[in-house]
Amino acid sequence: MPRFLDGRTRRAVRLSRGAGAAAAALGCTMLVVAGCSSSSTPSAGASSRPFSPNVSSFSGELPSSVASAKSSLLASVSAAAASQSAAAASFQASVSAQVAAGRAEAQSVLAKTQGSGNAVSDTTLTGLPKAQAAGFNAALITVVNNTRASASYAIKVEFLDESGKVVDTNFLGVKDLAPGAKAQPTAFSSIDRDKALVARVAQAQRY
């Protein structure tokens, strides 16, 4: 500043410079605010809806770990189904063979029997859980010879649905049961496996 300026002039110059600096600072502040405002406010063309991809346009394969887990699960389910099917076939074959041994004779005896027969009191029936009977409706028939001589038994077991209708019948035969001895043949129904059937001893004849 030239030394020949008087005091009043020097003060005017200093005030002018201070005002300029303040204006510059204010301008910077406005620029910063404007910059922040523009960065946080969406533009007029922007959409507020969430992004939703078109899945039909996707391609490729499952990751190997996911595909392996899926394959393992399917194999496990298939093995379980095969195991259950095999157990059912085994149970059916075993009991059918047991029943076939005395079926014809039991049918013949009961065809001549009046009413429920003379040995209903010698028999008791216990329902078997489906898990134990490979998914079939089945019942264990316990026959006890309460006489003093050997005897044979012909037994008719009926399976009823929830309405009380007879939907299946088994004929069981027990040959030459000793006095006081016990036999336990199994009766089962291979129909309506998806329903709960009730079994009952309809006839029992000692001969």
Results as ranks from 00 to 15, higher is better:
residue 178 A to T: 06
residue 142 T to C: 00
residue 119 A to F: 09
residue 127 G to Y: 04
residue 144 V to D: 01
residue 152 S to F: 06
residue 2 P to I: 08
residue 65 S to C: 10
residue 51 F to Q: 09
residue 112 K to I: 00
residue 201 V to H: 04
residue 57 S to G: 15
residue 37 S to N: 14
residue 112 K to C: 07
residue 170 N to Q: 03
residue 14 R to C: 03
residue 149 A to H: 09
residue 102 G to I: 09
residue 126 T to H: 03
residue 1 M to K: 02
residue 33 V to A: 12
residue 20 G to Y: 06
residue 195 K to I: 00
residue 18 G to T: 12
residue 170 N to A: 02
residue 10 R to F: 06
residue 188 F to D: 02
residue 92 Q to M: 11
residue 105 E to R: 15
residue 25 A to I: 13
residue 74 L to G: 11
residue 109 V to W: 05
residue 150 S to P: 09
residue 71 S to V: 05
residue 115 G to V: 07
residue 87 A to N: 11
residue 32 V to R: 06
residue 121 S to P: 00
residue 1 M to D: 03
residue 153 Y to H: 03
residue 39 S to V: 14
residue 117 G to P: 02
residue 176 D to A: 13
residue 62 L to R: 14
residue 58 F to D: 13
residue 80 A to W: 04
residue 4 F to Q: 03
residue 42 P to V: 03
residue 171 F to K: 00
residue 166 V to Q: 07
residue 38 S to T: 15
residue 56 S to P: 00
residue 85 S to T: 14
residue 16 S to T: 10
residue 177 L to F: 09
residue 178 A to S: 15
residue 135 G to P: 08
residue 191 I to F: 00
residue 11 R to I: 05
residue 68 S to Q: 10
residue 94 S to R: 05
residue 94 S to P: 07
residue 6 D to T: 10
residue 185 P to F: 07
residue 126 T to Y: 07
